[in-house]
Design a protein around this nucleic acid. Structure first.
Lengths: 344, 344
DNA sequence: TTGAAAGCGCTAACAG
DNA sequence: CTGTTAGCGCTTTCAA
């Protein structure tokens, strides 16, 4: 007991070679498909490998072929942010499709930890790096990463020399408004953050676009910028609802803000969705399913971003050409119970 | 541009050896401390290594020395569960302290994915495995892992042949009750889950213990088992509060249940904390800070469990002896605004 | 206290 | 289509 994993003398490529009556080279190529092999020989090798439970040691493989079969994932706070961990899951799945694995390192937003993370990834000779953020933001890639094979996830950078994948922020706005106008709303408030981030700008643009698409002139007083968090949502709702001609629906920057709007609506005796329809962004199940009534919201494609980023790292064009792709992924509207047609 | 990471011909042990005027062997030993080296020579080597920015390739190292400098972390849904990702952070930090890295694989609760994860970890020749769960539960370690070097995190198993680390569930209960009784509560409700899990049993035991410690006989009708989720909290609160002699405080199995209790209290026109004090477990910031008033709760030691588990893997005793440690970590009470002394 | 040689498990380069 | 040889970068043996 307490043997090391694989203590039973691991079967190596020589064992398979012996069993199949061929050379190790042939086994290697039969398994990797790197060169043409007689079909029958190949079958014999595959069979032997299977029987012996052989699978190549990625370290030895990498040592020789200058690949590590490992992708690095450098993030700020993803591991500790609700559901953003899905980005990691997506990355893992994509890596697995290429017989690779992901080494996820979370800097927790601390610069020094990021530095160490970069060193670690370099040490482990990762084949590529996903540089990710927990929410869509503009980043500048650390210079220590220069020359590395990098894709940005849930982040974009000023210089466009890295491929990147982010949510379609404008689409989030237009989809939300489209959903609201389609059930009859015309006075629609927008609770936005008072920061300058891609998500903030994009969703506002989408809001304006959506209103325009519905032929509704934008009433600037219906757009209120507030601070992050539930508290911000409460305050913004107060401004929006505490007036004679209040909106019949509110599009919230995220679910947290929406939660604040719920609270204010409750205080004011407004019934959701009949007196006020609400739509959020994030699909934080913990919040959106807990609210009464359950919140209609737009889910961010975390899993998909992680998957796309890693897949991209494996594409030959990414390696070869200078053409970078900047992809915006669509976001899904999750219909629950906080939207209804307006009264009257 | 677009060179591979470390394309600039990486400095190897030979370069350092040349620069320091010694053999590669000496460099290796000077850096690893595996054998005695003349202090001056050693200094020269260290200096050269530093200057050249050398650090050994873990793959080559591992290939020779039968270690991979990699710890595997096999979990069910940790990456996608709010804040449980902290367990991974803790594991990473502990691994870094031992020049290692963690390969985190999330099965998403799918058996087939777990199987593949195990194969992957075996392939990568990890030095040890943390078998983790997103919440404290009883597990049986897959037989495929037999012979591996394993520690359980946020999980325990029937056979005690693996070291494990879990939250002190009983302590959670006694701490909660102690806090409540210390401000004067005597009729304290307990909203528990109707499952049979270590957390459920442990917290109830802690509740009883806490009441006993305060010299208060347990009123069985004050303990109500309900389903998981906010909805369960709402129903349980209804049972507890809709009676003449209602409790002045409620200890909730978790924050979600607490959220449900808040909602019911609101509906019934009960003011928190003055009419009803509430205490939760989990410290889901998204929930506990969002509620009005903010929720007093008990935080689970996710980070610490991850850290402990990996640290344990590196301890020689763990390797050598059959003595397994089953550790219960203390949990911190986070005081916010949902507890006050009862109305006379 | 140090160095030279061998080899971890695999794949690339070079034959045939 | 297949095999032989060499060597990835390091650490371990063995020898001095």
């Amino acid at each position: 007991m307490n043997k090391k994993l694989g203590a039973s003398p691991r079967v190596g490529i020589r064992d398979v070679a012996a069993a199949a009556g061929v050379s190790p080279t042939t086994v290697s190529h039969a398994l990797s498909g790197a060169r043409a092999i007689n079909a029958e020989t190949r079958a014999r090798v595959l069979d032997a490998a299977q029987r012996l439970g052989y699978s190549p040691d990625p370290r030895a493989r990498g040592l020789r072929s200058a690949r590590s079969y490992t992708i690095g994932l450098l993030s700020d706070n993803i591991a500790t942010t609700p559901y953003a961990g899905l980005l990691i899951s997506g990355a893992q799945d994509a890596a697995a499709e290429h017989q690779s694995v992901v080494l996820a390192l979370d800097s927790n937003g601390i610069a020094e930890r990021e530095q160490r993370g970069i060193s670690t990834l370099k040490n482990y000779r990762v084949d590529g790096i996903v540089y990710a953020r927990m929410y869509h933001q503009q980043v500048s890639v650390p210079t220590e990463l220069d020359g590395a094979h990098i894709v940005l996830a849930d982040a974009s950078s000023l210089d466009l020399s890295y491929s990147s994948v982010v949510p379609n922020e404008v689409g989030i706005g237009t989809d939300a408004i489209k959903h609201l106008t389609s059930v009859g709303h015309r006075r629609i408030g927008f609770v936005n953050l008072s920061e300058s981030a891609p998500a903030v700008m994009g969703r506002e643009q989408g809001y304006r676009q959506g209103m325009q698409d519905a032929g509704i002139p934008v009433d600037e007083s219906l757009i209120v910028a507030t601070t992050a968090g539930v508290q911000g949502g409460r305050e913004a709702a107060r401004k929006l609802l505490d007036r004679p001609n209040r909106p019949s629906a509110i599009f919230c920057f995220n679910d947290e803000a929406a939660m604040g709007v719920y609270q204010t609506a409750h205080e004011m005796g407004l019934a959701i969705p009949n007196d006020l329809s609400i739509i959020g962004v994030d699909n934080l199940e913990l919040v959106s399913r807990a609210l009464v009534p359950m919140l209609t919201t737009i889910a961010l494609p975390h899993y998909e971003m992680g998957h796309w980023a890693v897949s991209r790292l494996f594409e030959p064009q990414e390696m070869a050409s200078a053409d970078r792709i900047h992809r915006q992924l669509p976001c899904e509207l999750i219909q629950r119970d906080s939207v209804a047609r307006p009264r009257s």
